[in-house]
Design a protein around this nucleic acid. Structure first.
Lengths: 194, 194
DNA sequence: TCTGTATTTAGATATACTTCTAATTAGATT
DNA sequence: AATCTAATTAGAAGTATATCTAAATACAGA
């Protein structure tokens, strides 16, 4: 099946996010049951049980044997454990957002606070300011040393207050300074350092 | 918290059984975001994100830092992994059905096919027949040897066709026979022997 | 103190889900 | 074949959930 990780997890959780379906799994973990038996134990009608079993069957969480007219269901514990183990593998979490366009927010902020290449206002919000700083930092090349005068000139093309912006770029970790020389650094969110 | 295992799992799955909440977890697994940023990335309004974050907060799946007006959320991966590990521990599955009255089905079947101590009809369904056989088997004591004549006498008190019932009790594993003597055995569902 | 920004809360609407009854299917028993 | 039994499917009704708009809250900056 060519199902995204998101769809896989969403189906899994939707199936299990129901009280009676969880109870059915609990019951079937200790015995095999017919539909009528499950209906009696859970105090609902047979069609309701059939409906729930269809959900569980769609994930192969239950196995079925037919004896006479009885449909005997039992838990497929192997499948359940496999899903439980695989499903939240740490490294797969980012795939839940694989179709998210991460540039959308940056584009929104930039279109609000830029007019062409010029910064028209400095946003007060932290996140929005960071977007502007990152955009400004991209005006500098990696692996190149800049004199303070050059930095001022470049910033001036985007905003008159080059002094404040120059200081902020360094303080916030977008650029580094040593002995009067500046260079661009790979930005790491210092707030995720735990 | 004095929450049943069922309630714990049900809450967990209900929170995660939503496309946008899963996407939020995916996004927050790689960066921290403000509410407005999440709203932009997922193309919904801020109140909707707030609503989803409330669900995630109820499980401590997200951590919050407040910087200025921004509420910066990030994933609490530790809690997520812990839940994922604990939640489907094999030995806990039966607790999902701990409040189920397992005698309900037996009582229903017995009330249909018994009149006091007498079996009035033999159900055609497999499961119902098993209920009747089990009930009949309970008329015999464990750790006691019965001669065939005694078995016949006891069964006769409940149904005239003692020969068929005697044979069925042995064939289905409720009783054992050797050298003309019978004794009751602990019944194991042969269908779960894998 | 007043204005602006980001978030949250409240309430309304639209959609999705659970459960039921009624009808249908499939198979066993007479 | 005809009848009975158990399960499933179809369709309807009630309930719960997601999302929105509007209003309220909390806080920052001027």
């Amino acid at each position: 099946m060519d199902e995204t990780h998101l769809e896989t997890l969403l189906n899994f959780f939707k199936v299990l996010a129901n009280e009676n379906r969880l109870k059915i799994l609990g019951i079937l973990s200790t015995r095999e049951c017919s539909v009528e038996e499950l209906a009696t134990l859970l105090s609902v009608k047979e069609p309701t049980i059939s409906h729930h079993l269809n959900h569980l069957k769609s994930l192969n969480l239950v196995d079925l044997s037919i004896i006479g007219n009885d449909h005997l269901y039992r838990l497929n514990a192997v499948v359940l454990q496999a899903m439980n183990k695989e499903i939240f593998a740490q490294e797969k979490l980012p795939f839940l957002a694989e179709d998210v366009d991460y540039t959308a927010y940056e584009r929104k902020v930039l279109s609000t606070f830029l007019d062409g290449e010029r910064i028209t206002a400095i946003p007060s919000g932290y996140k929005k300011r960071m977007v502007i700083y990152r955009w400004l930092a991209e005006k500098f090349e990696f692996d190149k040393q800049y004199q303070e005068q050059e930095v001022n000139t470049i910033i001036s093309e985007h905003h008159p207050d080059y002094a404040s912006f120059r200081r902020d770029l360094v303080d916030l970790g977008f650029m580094a300074r040593e002995r009067g020389m500046y260079w661009r650094t790979e930005w790491q969110n210092p707030r995720l350092d735990n």
